[in-house]
Design a protein around this nucleic acid. Structure first.
Length: 477
RNA sequence: GGCGGCAUACCCAAGUGGUUAAGGGAGCGGUCUGCAAAACCGCGAUUCGGCGGUUCAAAUCCGCCUGCCGCCUCCA
């Protein structure tokens, strides 16, 4: 039984979608004004795994992730770079999908762009005005603003656990003369001359931030959906405001389960432009394999913070390498001739194979506990390596078990996206040198053999001796 | 000031009432080896930030304290 921690209730609840086996899932995607950083990447990976696990569990998931392609920061960038805002958005949308693809993140079923849903937004805003939840105020020469009247939505604050009085007393709520209440927020923003603009009943303007998600959710998934996700920082005000807009208008529950992922910190500090410690995903991908980054992201629970430090990531990578080595070693054993004479103890491996999927599911069913799920995979991998070390050539019985291991680890590890299909392969020349070295060793010409090893090392490869006069070539560490 | 989260071995990180406190990294000891590396085996928290309380039983529940962090303004 899958359980999910729901931010709305603060509890871990059994997961029951509105219309099983269908699951409607929406996650707040990027605002395409710059390259995404590893925090964005972590979020995308977390929800990718959640989406895949739901599908693995038999649910029919419809997954929507938006692209915010109109926003103040995009406009600012466009002005700074003297380009059209749409060019800026297109540039970073492309960059986003490039990173997503590299990270092995399955595309959402739909990636709607905000600017393609302006009509739906205007419709929703008009409806809110008619129902008395929004009001129009004069703004620029080109048009008027529309603001949400927060006290008219009586459960405002239910997601973030805030109430209107506290927010009004709070020192950090901005003063704004056009707002009737400090917690009111913009639904429609009048454009200034030269800014991107759309025609509306309130003149030339553009949508507020919160309204786009609400509009796209309703248009693409319906009034009520099962899962809505995003970063922990979006709880307030973004998701709170989405609830207010939608529920005030539809008078139906907007989202059943709210999921929020924790932040990545850089050496204990929040990533921010002002601190200058932004680590872009595309740069991370230059230094680390995508599977390693995914392994790192999934090494902590998605709700927790994740501290990044180069040493921590590199320590994670060493564990990941050993895990992935297992695949290559199994493949080697499977392709090598078998041995009927080998004495092998396979009992523990049999047990490990039988329980791995159960342990994996138990972990994932507990609010997508990926660290625990990974531990289950590592248990099987360790047991497999133990068996492999018993004999260079394995028995036919061992081969069939190893094939099962491969299947399980590929299935479950593949779901997490932490398995690499890349195998260490060396140039033919290196292979030949290594083979020649075997002969030299047989003739006890160790000095020559060591010279070959040194030469190969200079070429970027390490030769490791394996039992029975065999060898393995690995990239230099 | 309001709301929320976290504190588990040298490091990362699961565990949220009851058998030996997962897993990974690093370390140490051993086996193997021409050497090296790898591999494999073994070792490692009598204890879970501190102090009280509840309970037959707590890392796990409650209270207080200390420390760190996030949100309340754009933010994954």
């Amino acid at each position: 039984m899958l359980k999910i921690t729901n931010t709305l209730t603060g509890n871990k609840e059994p997961f029951g979608p509105l219309t099983p086996p269908k699951v409607k899932m929406y996650v707040c995607g990027p605002t395409v004004y710059d390259d995404i950083h590893i925090g964005n990447a972590r979020s995308a990976v977390n929800f990718d795994v959640i989406r895949k696990y739901l599908a693995f569990s038999g649910f029919q998931v419809t997954y929507v992730m938006n692209i915010t392609d109109i926003d103040d920061r995009i406009i600012k960038k466009a002005i700074d770079e003297k380009r059209e805002y749409s060019e800026v958005a297109a540039t970073y949308t492309k960059a986003y999908f490039d990173v997503i693809e590299k990270l092995g993140i399955q595309k959402a079923d739909i990636h709607p762009k905000a600017t393609e849903y302006i009509a739906e937004m205007i419709g929703l805003i008009s409806g809110l005005i008619e129902k008395g939840h929004a009001y129009v105020v004069p703004s620029t020469d080109l048009g008027k603003d529309v603001l949400f009247d927060s006290p008219t939505f009586k459960s405002y604050g239910k997601l973030s656990g805030k109430n209107l009085e506290e927010l009004q007393e709070g020192a950090r709520v901005e003063k704004n003369e056009t707002k009737k209440n400090p917690t009111d927020f913009v639904l429609w923003k009048a454009s200034k001359p030269g800014e991107p603009q759309w025609d509306s009943p309130w003149g030339k303007g553009r949508p507020g931030w919160h309204i786009e998600c609400s509009s796209m959710v309703r248009k693409l998934l319906g009034d009520s959906i099962d899962i809505h996700g995003g970063g922990i920082d979006l709880i307030f005000p973004h998701h709170e405001n989405e609830i207010a807009q939608c529920e005030a208008f539809t008078e139906k529950p907007y989202v059943k389960y709210w999921l929020h992922n924790g932040f990545i910190e850089i050496s204990g500090q929040k990533m921010s432009k002002s601190l200058g410690n932004i680590w872009k995903a595309k740069d991370a991908l230059k230094d680390f394999r995508p599977e390693v980054l995914r392994y790192f992201f999934l090494s902590a629970h998605y709700r927790s913070g994740l501290n990044y430090d180069r040493e921590i990531l590199e320590a994670n990578m060493r564990g990941w390498e050993e895990f992935n080595q297992t695949f290559q070693r199994i493949e080697e054993a499977l392709t090598a001739p078998h041995s009927d004479a080998a004495v092998m103890d396979l009992l523990e491996l049999r047990l490990a194979i039988d329980e791995v999927e159960t342990k994996f599911k138990e972990a994932m069913d507990d609010d997508f506990n990926t660290p625990k799920a990974i531990a289950a995979l590592f248990d099987l991998a360790r047991e497999t390596r133990r068996v492999l070390s018993q004999s260079a050539r394995v028995t036919p019985g061992a081969k069939s078990l190893l094939a099962e291991v491969l299947e399980k680890l590929n299935l479950l590890g593949g779901l997490l996206g932490i398995v690499t299909t890349e195998r260490a392969s060396a140039p033919k020349e290196v292979e030949e040198l290594a083979q020649a070295r075997v002969e030299l060793k047989k003739e006890k010409k160790f000095k020559e053999a060591d010279e070959i090893r040194a030469r190969v090392l200079a070429m970027g490869f390490t030769i490791e001796d394996v039992q029975g006069g065999h060898f393995r070539i690995l990239p230099k560490k």
